[in-house]
Nucleic acid binder design. Structure first.
Lengths: 216, 216
DNA sequence: TAGATTGTTAATCGATTAACAATC
DNA sequence: TAGATTGTTAATCGATTAACAATC
């Protein structure tokens, strides 16, 4: 049963499959072929079949895939029905938005604690969740054992904070602070989110794209 | 002078090079070899040289790269000193954070207008910038000619809004609404940002990672 | 000059696409 | 049964790595 390693490219596509299939299911669509799905998602049918077969034969020859079943399978693979205990540190503009905007339940996570260093922020609450002071982080972690931490703190504070959290048992970081987080220990997972990098990809494209309208 | 096409993989790495080089420069570091940079960034030296050579010979044999010069070259390639006229639509939690948190000037953009559909939000201002009602979008675009739009609206509103904006001359979208935006016209650029996809990558990893501590 | 490190070509590796037999 | 569409193998393509001559 030694599952062979799934390639990172496939893994990165899974959430997108899950999203599209969820929407199809909501629309009441029962079955879909790899060809139809490929047109919808802008991939090739071949790639979809290849990707899905990394995890098992979810389809049926001559029929295609059952939307609901496939969606649930992929959800299972991603672990969306788990409740990964998650904390968020840093409730500035971005932390506030990340705390409120993301559907944690839908991603297999449960937000169990908010923390900020600023004593004027700590003590308040956000959507009914109290914001704790970072001084209480160690005690909280010992008691609640979060395994995932979302960092929305300034770049300067992130590395030391992450180090502390690893010592407290945190095994995964969703890092919104500027500057990449990296651990030698492959047991610590990191997703560095760099919004500016994504925006710069657009400005690069604009520079090379022929202006659609060069009149005036 | 027909520049040969640069591969998407290289382009996606450019902002990260730019970021690391900027930090090195701030630290006062004058030169760096591909080997040193590779260790810092977690890449191979070979890849760095390969990537940079897509754009020209920025280094010097036996010496390495001049940090400041290289940083400026890459900034040039990305267009960071331009002022792409940019608007943002949808000032909910996320829109608010995206408007405030991102360094537009540092990304070659200039935020020239904020819009929201809600009449209680429109009329207010954010960091001194007035929030306009979406009804005034067409007039604004005719006058101000934005070329980039940031969408922080609900998924249901995004496609129609994007269509309208294209008709008004917008050529690039930074899309934070759920659901992918896609245009047949290759002249319209889209960056779909899916925060949940990134989080799901972590939960997937947690499921496969051996628990670091399986005591208690 | 000798040492270092690039620019660049060739080799390897991985990911995507095409093709088709299996089968519902 | 015939038609459709998968699962899977083989072919292609692209991206990464290794190697080394060029050169500062």
């Amino acid at each position: 049963m030694a599952k062979q390693e799934i390639s990172p490219s496939v893994i990165r596509r899974l959430p997108r499959y899950y999203r599209f299939l969820g929407e199809l299911r909501e629309k009441g669509i029962v079955r879909i072929s790899s060809k139809e799905l490929s047109q919808l998602m802008g991939l090739t049918a071949s790639q979809i079949r290849q990707d899905l077969n990394c995890f098992g034969g979810f389809g049926q020859q001559g029929y295609g895939y059952n939307v609901r079943a496939l969606c649930e399978e992929i959800g299972q693979i991603l672990g969306v029905s788990l409740h990964r205990r998650t904390i968020l540190i840093g409730l500035g503009n971005l932390g506030h938005a990340i705390a409120s905007h993301v559907s944690y339940a839908g991603c297999g996570c449960e937000l169990i604690g908010l923390f900020d260093e600023n004593p004027f922020v700590a003590g308040r609450d956000l959507n009914g969740m109290p914001i704790h002071h970072t001084d209480t982080l160690a005690g909280f972690c010992h008691q609640e054992q979060p395994e995932l931490a979302i960092l929305c703190v300034p770049e300067s504070a992130a590395p030391a904070l992450a180090q502390t959290l690893v010592a407290l048992g945190v095994r995964a970081f969703w890092n919104f602070s500027q500057g990449d987080l990296r651990f030698d220990d492959p047991g610590i997972l990191v997703e560095n989110v760099h919004l500016a990098d994504s925006l710069l990809t657009l400005t690069y494209g604009l520079l090379r794209q022929p202006e659609s309208e060069s009149d005036s």
